[in-house]
Nucleic acid binder design. Sequence first.
RNA 1: CGGGACGUGGCGCAGCCUGGUAGCGCACUCGCUUUGGGAGCGAGGGGCCGCCGGUUCGAAUCCGGCCGUCCCGACCA
Length: 560
Amino acid sequence: MIHRASQLFLPTLREAPADAEAASHKLLVRGGFIRQVTAGVWSFLPLGWRVHQKCVQIVREEIDAIGGQEMLMPVLTPIELWQHTQRDHIPELFRLKDRNGRDYVLPMTHEETVTFHARELQSYRQLPQILYHFSIKERDEPRPRGGLLRLREFIMKDSYSFDRDEEGLAKSFELHRGAYERIYERSGIEVFCVEAESGMMGGSESFDFLAPTGSGENTLVTCENGDFAADLEVARSVPRAPRSLARLKAPAKIETPDIKTCEALAESLGIDLAATSKAMPVTKQDGTVVLALLRGDDRLEESKLVTALGSDFRPATDEEILAAFGAEGGSLGPVGFVGEIVADETLRDGQFVAGANKTGFHLRGVEAGRDFEPRFADIRQPKEGDTCPHCGGALSFQTAIELGHIFKLGTRYSEPLGTRFLDENGEERPVIMGSYGIGPARMMAAAVEQHHDENGIVWPAAIAPYDVQVLALAGGDAEILALADEVAETLSAEGLEVLLDDRDLRHGEKFADADLIGCPFRIVVGKKSLADGAVDLRVRATGEDERIERLEVAKRVVGS
RNA sequence: CGGGACGUGGCGCAGCCUGGUAGCGCACUCGCUUUGGGAGCGAGGGGCCGCCGGUUCGAAUCCGGCCGUCCCGACCA
């Protein structure tokens, strides 16, 4: 297959748009792969669509290989389905009405629709099943950004497994996990499979596939010894030990006027910041005020607290704080507080300084279990300097993109939508489901983030828009043009996809575009090598040049 | 939703402070020269200056409102 650059819609740019930050954003726009239509909504130009479709095909092959059955479900969806699962009020959900005033949603994922169809699975004999499709998802994200990194409209492969029991679900889940590992492996993208939060999907267990990148929205925590990887939001880690204080038999009140922060407290007392405590009063959805208690040098990990509380929460207001503690922020503590206290595990042992619940006073020698009764939970955010919970190795923190997410849903959707089957005993039971998402556009973005240099993209071979670019440095010379054509034909005959740059441009521009577009191989046909019937082959990734007899070059490319 | 910035030809920007009817680089078209890493000369084409309103003889420029886009945060698969 040969495409001639002179006839393609291939608008490359010398400069990146001013608002682009991420490398993938800049390079995909400059290379003529994508263009923005409005915030978070992008078109794939022909070159970008080729890459996208290669990602899609890899995903398709791997999901087919685990028994997935491809189908297609619509974007336009009656809101009733979402009302059944009570997801109709998610803020990110796009809604619209038809001319008769009937309500619809544009789905952000297709659990409702697929579960609706799965009502036709009525017997255990028909299970298990894996159904999937590639379709457009719509999410009214508050802040789309970074080109393809975070979109409001995007194509996702979402598959759904239907099993009769948890054991079956575990199998379907493992099949997907394996398929995902192979997808990223084939695509040349480095990912870490980590435990994740289930968020708005509901369900019991989920894994994220995080690709470390220069830009992104997640933070990947990994151990130097390779035995631990997690998303920051759920990562456990071991903080350094505090320099402990002399033990007191009972809390001792000390006057601390004008001290509002743990840092100021530690400094004025001349003690370790880690020997202080941070009181964070929060209000749950039902209106109760709960005290979250952390070590003074730690930050609260909100998603962990949500899990611990089993409820969303917001910071308590000043009025709520005064009513619940009888003191102002800055002097709050667990001792004497009547209400639920969730203390971080770091406060289980030893003594620390805490607010006295009297404005301008703190208590020394506060001890959990003796002076107050908390519920312990891991609610701190890991930080630089913490160590691995498995081996004590050093942890590193990297920006990452979430490339895929797999969930055990259980009966979260089958129950409300009435998707049940009969087992051998004639008993009716809800189908046990899993859902598994992966975004080809994010695969593209991650691949670019991980594989580029100052001149442009260095596509992994499996998802490059073309296998090889042939540059005809003709300058109007018909002989060279014809020769480039012939070279392209021999490559094509070997089954390679060829981009023939036959445009009447400066040589420098062709080189620059070739580097930018980033196909694995570049073959230059020009005067320099014409005399001896050779061409110049360059490997994009290494920059290695090689002069090769022109009839041999196809074999050389295929062979590597 | 909070904070900040920006909106002038396809892209990148200047002009705005101090009002007088729009300019630069790249790209594009034509001609000649040139050609292994973004050429040179010459001649051209292309702009509702985000939108609406106000001030003024006159608004890209001043004032008000709105919209859009980006960044940081909040939020979020």
